[in-house]
Design a protein around this nucleic acid. Sequence first.
DNA 1: TCCAATT
Length: 400
Amino acid sequence: MAASTLQRSRAFKEAERLFLLSSHEQIISTMETQVSNGPTGNSLPNGPVVSTNGSTDDSKTNLIVNYLPQNMTQEEFKSLFGSIGEIESCKLVRDKITGTVPAATTGISAGQSLGYGFVNYVDPNDADKAINTLNGLKLQTKTIKVSYARPSSASIRDANLYVSGLPKTMSQKEMEQLFSQYGRIITSRILVDQVTGISRGVGFIRFDKRNEAEEAIKGLNGQKPLGAAEPITVKFANNPSQKTGQALLTQLYQTAARRYTGPLHHQTQRFRLDNILNMSYGTKSSPSLLPRFSPITIDSMTSLAGVNLTGPSGAGWCIFVYNLSPEADESVLWQLFGPFGAVTNVKVIRDFTTNKCKGFGFVTMTNYDEAAMAIASLNGYRLGDRVLQVSFKTSKQHKA
DNA sequence: TCCAATT
């Protein structure tokens, strides 16, 4: 007991050192919950795997760690899990694409972490200890998951499903019940609105085997769950390692942008964002993109009188940008809106199969005045051979 | 041509 307490203390200190966690108390309370509830979230087999070829059986020592913070490095990963016991090997899984953006630009090294990794301990007792100690640990915004890794094999690859159209009332457990008839579920998740916590009707199911996932698609895609009004869509999920360079760039920009929000003053933040862009392009914003005042300002102002603005959510003011070209990317939105003030987020909406812009995007700005000025200036702005339509985002497609 | 679901 005393030894285990000591063990935890050591691991938490390491976590604190690495990630400057807000309070020790928070970690302890998290872990107490974890310990009393036992391992959560999946039905991974913990038993030994029969080895047919006499090779080393690492089913008791090899762990998979999920939901790691994006910016955690291999060294930090090793350091955290090494605080439990001697490691035979460990690997933070990273994207294959390298060098897309200089690390100095974003502060993020190339070969973006995919958010998971493997740790193989020398002693099975340490693997067990790592699960008990670190599973459920909160690091930054993530809650890591530590569990035994399944033996690597081709049959467990591409077994992840994306589910949409779920009834908002359906719980994760109910979703698992629906899918469990097709095989062993490794993980499941329902996405929720960050503010309200209400289900977004979208989720993921990872099966143990790919063929189980295929059967689930055949059996459930287009079907209405019992008592549901609408059919659900079930398809294979996008594989993050197959992300395009463009999507990775976007992720880098957004991650970098988030780093500058919060403690910094708006004014400072604006220049930092501009700096990111300027550095990555090696130049100031191109003259053709510099905002100018447009005669079409009245229309955007009248929309302010409308009732169905999305309004200032916790994040800021959301702006709808229409008539972007299929080749438009996030950087153009940063360049267009950044000069008007604090921009916290931009997104170009793309078709999932072609990855081309669907003609519109969104920009979130912190301050109303700056957002209104950006709209007044950029609505009607000619970008290439297109005239942009810019307004506060509304909740519906049709305005009154 | 007009308002985002992909951990």
